[in-house]
Amino acid sequence: MTTISAASPPIGRTVKKWLLPAVPFAILVALWGLAVLLFDPPVGVLPSPALVFEAPFNSDPYLANVGASVQRLILGFLVAASTGVVVGVAAGLSKPIAEFLGPLTTFMNALSGIAWIPLAVAWFGPGTGMVVFIVWNAAFFLVFGNTMLGVRLVPDVLQNGLLTLGASRMDVIRQVIVPGAMPYIMSGLRSGLGFGWRAVIAAELVGASLGLGAWIFEQQEFSRMDNIMAGALTIGVIGMVMDRWLLAPLERRTIERWGMVGSAS
């Protein structure tokens, strides 16, 4: 269609695309640095940007904690993804299963993740097992729900087409159902991972001695604000990298490849 303004040259656009987002970050860091200079707050309340950026290099347990959190996330997420997809496909194909699991999962989804932490501590004791359970709990219902929805929305025509060619039920599931539902599955995996990461942090906050969540909570007792902020920012960076650079492109490619309508956000 027609554009109204005279189009800006491509070079200017590229610069704008990379420069504009950097500006707020730069302003924020500058203001933060300025505030520290002007008001000289106790280092336990607001350390300078430099101190926070150095914190990971000065603190030995930093990498071990990051590693522990990421490991738990991956573990819990893998279990959630595989169980969620399998059960989701089953429920999408079979009405009795869907009718049975539907109300239960709706309810469980309403209190998924964080609310289970105290009970999980009682069951598994503090540590990795409990965190993995919480991650599974936070992600499973999203993966399940989206998979079931995706399977249901695969047009019957496609399945019939394959069946008339003499395909078996497993063929249909492998070649039609799963690919057809893939955009929904991807979108479920993506939000599942997001919920899972938050759940890791929350679980570690109250029920682990290792991991980013545990670490920043422990540092709070020593008023090590530099470590706390470094930890919080690390949590953000990891969450962002996973979502934006790993799962969002994957989801986009799935949607583009199979030409299904995706979802916002």
Binding site: P24, I201, L212, F217, A232, V237, G239
Partner: peptide, 18 residues
């Protein structure tokens, strides 16, 4: 948008200690 996406990713829970 990017800075908001970033702080969204940090999540409120991670700010609890701070």
């Amino acid at each position: 948008e990017p800075i908001m996406r970033f702080f969204n990713a940090v999540s409120g829970i991670a700010w609890l200690p701070a």
